[in-house]
Simulated scan of single mutants.
Amino acid sequence: MVVIEAHVVPGGTESIRLQEYALHIFSGINTNQGIKKAIKRGLIRVNGLQASTGLWVKAGFKIELCDLELPPSKIYKLPLEVVYEDDHIAIINKPGGISVSGNQFRTVQNALPYNLRPSMRKNALPVFRPVHRIDSPTCGLLLVAKTADASAKLGKQFEDRLVKKRYRAVVIGSLHEKGKIDMQVDDKDAVSTFKLVKKSPSIRNRFLSMVDLYPETGRTHQLRIHMAGIGNPILGDKIYGTEGEILRGKGLFLCAAELQFSHPDSGEEMSISIDPPYKFGRFMEMEEKRWEKYNSESEIV
């Protein structure tokens, strides 16, 4: 059994049961049912011992997520763009519309063996492990650990908020040049900042804005909730978007465009970035042309 993620409960943590607490600390499991199964199978251990779902978590407890070292039964043969790869880590460009992991077969995790080289290191993981989450409709950079050491060290960097992430999005409405959003998500502190990239007029929405988003905390759906909360929902957001302005078949206009972190083996400062999908800029251009055409025809009339 290999420890793939570890967490020490900080001081000041309110009284909470293990099943509920563990849901928010491990990147590899993001459902209550998944946490419950992992605890019952002995994959989540507290202070080195098997624990129960009802255990009350206390400050100083060391909670570990372990792996049974069983390879996936089936490999999902989905080609993925590999942006970076070595013997310790890999970074892939996750397509929108597919979950990173979960109980279903069609996940990014099940497609990783089809796209990545096995690690030759002694502590290589039998199953490649994504070390953070990206919402299913979101596309972009996903960091993957190939060894147990890489998984543990990257997990610690995420826990200590040392990993910097930049997202590119198209949102509805007009925004200032930059701003900060301090708004709780699920009754927990959450902070994001944004910088305007460009703005275009739109007949349907008055304005569309392309922005870079920087989450300072890592709450579920944080950026989507924050942008909707200030009145600028992300284009194509079926959950937090404005009814009547959801684009059918075009997906969510949110891309994880850049990651900055320390390499878990060499310590080198890594900065990996990609361009957002072509549709982001193209849609704004088309909306602006429609606006210009509409206004020129109005002037003639």
Rank of each mutant, 00 (worst) to 15 (best):
D212C: 04
F158N: 05
Q184R: 12
K195M: 06
I203G: 03
V191D: 02
P126Q: 12
T217R: 11
T220L: 10
T193V: 00
K156M: 08
I239G: 00
V163A: 05
R168K: 13
V144N: 10
R133Q: 13
R224K: 10
L143R: 06
A150T: 00
A228R: 09
I203Y: 09
V163R: 12
V127Y: 03
S200E: 13
I234P: 05
K164R: 13
A148D: 06
S151P: 09
L213N: 04
R161A: 07
K180M: 10
P201W: 11
V170S: 07
S136D: 02
K146S: 08
V197L: 15
L208H: 09
C139K: 11
V127K: 11
P126V: 01
G231R: 10
N205K: 05
T147K: 06
S192L: 09
D160M: 11
P233S: 06
I225N: 01
K153Q: 10
G241N: 03
P215G: 11
D149C: 03
Q222L: 05
D212I: 01
Q222R: 07
K238I: 07
R133N: 08
V163I: 15
F158S: 02
A152M: 14
F158T: 02
V127P: 01
D212V: 00
D160H: 14
L143D: 04
K156V: 13
G155Q: 10
V191H: 03
E243G: 01
R161Q: 13
A228D: 08
D149Q: 13
L141R: 10
F128L: 05
F194N: 02
K199R: 14
L213E: 05
V211K: 05
L162A: 12
I181L: 09
L143W: 06
L154G: 12
E159Q: 15
L142K: 05
I239T: 14
N232G: 02
D186P: 02
K188A: 11
K164E: 14
K195L: 12
V211W: 01
R166Q: 15
K195W: 02
S192A: 12
K164L: 14
Y214G: 01
F207D: 06
I203N: 14
I203V: 15
G218L: 06
F194D: 03
D186L: 09
V127N: 04
F128C: 00
C139W: 04
G244Y: 02
E177K: 14
H176Q: 14
I230F: 11
Y167K: 04
R161D: 12
G241I: 02
P126E: 09
V211M: 02
S200P: 00
D237A: 09
K146T: 01
K164I: 08
S136H: 05
P130E: 05
K156S: 11
I203D: 07
